[in-house]
Every structure is written in structure tokens, then in C-alpha cells.
């Protein structure tokens, strides 16, 4: 005889909220869908902004990119707040364990001064790049349209704050407070960093939220993360005895790979929407891409030395390949 554990079975009146049934039919929706779709106000906005009366409070025309439905831009990772913090807490645990391991085993002492200096020169000023990326993504989240597009950007922004903090801790661990001072000085004054700083400041001056997303997340981070964390740190520094550094940047390596899946998919959907969108994306990715390549090469040179040019060519090809998969043809020079 079967045993009924539930006290009663009640037939629900409906499976979900009206707006989700309209989009996805009468089946129960996922937590991601419930948390994201249609939750931004759309109509009957009350007042014009005093900070810019030409705009409406939620204004899809701030961008040159046009979408019939901005909710087409979904996040393949399906992150909403709950799943986002769970994922980052796990990664944070690993990263914390890595810091702990490097510190308690004195791994930093095993590196040569020269190697340690190389790592500091490359990585410490990047904490300012990360802070720029944080602000740029807050801009996209604040002024973009449609929650499925904007929500990943607030996650991205705070991730970049986390990364800036890991890079600061890395600097403190490898070179103490002086390393942070030196890193900031390089960021402000060293010729090798000036194209990069100009890039970041120029992106911060852009007020088209999708262009900011493209210039920062797609282009700059799309080139920077594979180049710096996968090639310069994990390959080049690691083989010279810098495994410790590679452990301390593991969060960034994995995070870069994870977020590229999202940003690539956004570009793909936008490009597939219309020829006009594709043309705008091509223009942005080419222009910003060219500048990003020029800004990154001098940072790679002290670590990659003779192989810098080959490395840049390889990275450009990989980047253009990803863009092509997303439906955007670009050609960058090095």
C-alpha cells in the first residue's frame, strides 16, 4: 500500500505571474526568470530627470543600439542575486584558501626579487583599471534598459571591486604598502600605463550605456583577462617561479572566462537583432579594440619581452575569432 506523506494535495490556481506566463507559457518559471523579467518600470513615468531633462527615467534611446525587446539579452549563467552570491562565496573561499596557502608557506619568499617586482609592476596598477571597470558597469546598470541586461552589470561592477581588492591584497603581500604607492604612481605617470589610463577615463566619459559595456566588458576586459591572467601570469610568470602569483590571481582567471560567456552572448544577440546594430557594434569594437591593443602591449612587454608581438597577434586573433562567432567582423592591427 503506498503511503501518502503529504497531508493534502492542492491544485494551484496558476503556475506563475502573468508576465511570465505571457513570455514562457503556463509552466512554473525558474527563479532566474522570476527575479529578472519585466521588473523594471516601463510606462507612465512621472517626472523628467533634473540631471538631464532630455532623458526619460528609463530611456532605451540613450544607446545607439536598438532592441525590440531588451529582455532578449539574457544571461546564459542565469545569475540572480541568490545564485550570484552563492557562486562568488564559493570562489571567494577558494581564493581565501589560496592567499592563506601562499602566506603560510612563505611562497612569496621563494620568488626572486626581480620576479616579484615584475608581478607588482604588472598587477598592482590594474587595481585602478578594475575600479574604473566597477564605475563603468554601475553606469550600464544605472542607465541601461531591461533587467536581464543590466543585472549582470551590477554583479560585474562589484566583482571588479572584489578584484581590485584582491589585487591590493596581492600588492600588500608581495611588496607591502610601498607597492601600492608605487603602483599608483606608475598608473598616474609611467609612460607604459598612460594609454591604459586614458582608455579607462575616456570610457568613463561615454554616456551611451551599451557603448560603455562594449568598450569596457567586451573589448578591454575581453582582451585584458586572457592576456594578463592566462598568458602573462599563469604561463610566463608561473614557469619562472611565480606559481604563487598565479594562485593569487586564480579568481580573476576563472572569473574572466565565466563573464566572457555572458558578454559574448550579449553581443551576439544584439548583432543578430539588426544590420544597424551589427554596424554600430563593429564600429565600437574596432575603434575601442584598436586602442585597447595599443594600451595593453606596453604592459605585456616587461614580462613577455621578445614574445610580446607574437602574444599580441595571438590574442587579437582569439578576440576577433570570438567576435566573429558573435556575428561581428572586426580587424585589429598590432
Amino acid at each position: 500500500m503506498p503511503i501518502e506523506l503529504r497531508t493534502i494535495t492542492i491544485e494551484p490556481l496558476r503556475n506563475n505571474y502573468d508576465h511570465l506566463e505571457k513570455r514562457f507559457g503556463h509552466k512554473p518559471a525558474s527563479r532566474y526568470q522570476e527575479a529578472s523579467y519585466d521588473i523594471q518600470p516601463v510606462e507612465n513615468l512621472h517626472y523628467r530627470p533634473t540631471w538631464d531633462p532630455d532623458q526619460t527615467l528609463y530611456d532605451p534611446t540613450l544607446s545607439r543600439i536598438r532592441m525590440r525587446d531588451w529582455y532578449d539579452l539574457k544571461d546564459p549563467r542565469q545569475l540572480y542575486y541568490g545564485s550570484y552570491t552563492q557562486a562568488r562565496a564559493r570562489q571567494q573561499d577558494t581564493e581565501e584558501a589560496n592567499f592563506e596557502f601562499v602566506e603560510s608557506n612563505g611562497l612569496v619568499m621563494l620568488m626572486t626579487d626581480a620576479l616579484r617586482q615584475q608581478a607588482l609592476d604588472l598587477l598592482v596598477p590594474l587595481r585602478h583599471v578594475a575600479w574604473g571597470a566597477d564605475q563603468n558597469n554601475m553606469m550600464v546598470c544605472g542607465y541601461g534598459y531591461g533587467t536581464t541586461f543590466k543585472q549582470p552589470c551590477v554583479f560585474y561592477a562589484l566583482d571588479q571591486l572584489g578584484i581590485a581588492q584582491y589585487l591590493s591584497r596581492l600588492g600588500l603581500l608581495l611588496g607591502g604598502q610601498d607597492a601600492l604607492v608605487a603602483g599608483k604612481q606608475a598608473w598616474m605617470e609611467a609612460p607604459a600605463w598612460q594609454d591604459m589610463r586614458r582608455y579607462v577615463e575616456d570610457v568613463m566619459a561615454v554616456r551611451d550605456p551599451v557603448e560603455v559595456f562594449v568598450a569596457q566588458d567586451v573589448v578591454l576586459d575581453g582582451l585584458l583577462y586572457p592576456l594578463v591572467y592566462e598568458r602573462l601570469v599563469d604561463d610566463l610568470l608561473a614557469v619562472q617561479g611565480g606559481t604563487a602569483v598565479s594562485m593569487l590571481t586564480q579568481f580573476m582567471t576563472r572569473w574572466g572566462a565565466e563573464t566572457r560567456r555572458w558578454s559574448d552572448s550579449v553581443v551576439k544577440t544584439m548583432a543578430a537583432e539588426s544590420a544597424e546594430n551589427r554596424a554600430v557594434l563593429e564600429e565600437w569594437i574596432t575603434q575601442w579594440g584598436q586602442r585597447a591593443v595599443a594600451a595593453l602591449a606596453p604592459l605585456a612587454r616587461p614580462v613577455a619581452v621578445d614574445t610580446t608581438d607574437a602574444l599580441m597577434t595571438e590574442q587579437i586573433a582569439a578576440f576577433a575569432g570570438r567576435a566573429a562567432k558573435a556575428g561581428v567582423t572586426i580587424k585589429l592591427e598590432h
Binding site: 578594475a130 598616474m188 577615463e201
Partner: peptide, 19 residues
């Protein structure tokens, strides 16, 4: 302080008013 405040900088390629 080092992990937050110190991340910012005074821009020189753009004015503060622009940013």
C-alpha cells in the same frame, strides 16, 4: 582605506566635471 579609498585617482585625460 587601501582596499577602497586608495583605488580612486584624479583624472587628467578627462575633467572631473566630464566624468
Amino acid at each position: 582605506r587601501l582596499l577602497t579609498r586608495d583605488l580612486g585617482w584624479d583624472p587628467t585625460y578627462q575633467t572631473r566635471e566630464t566624468l
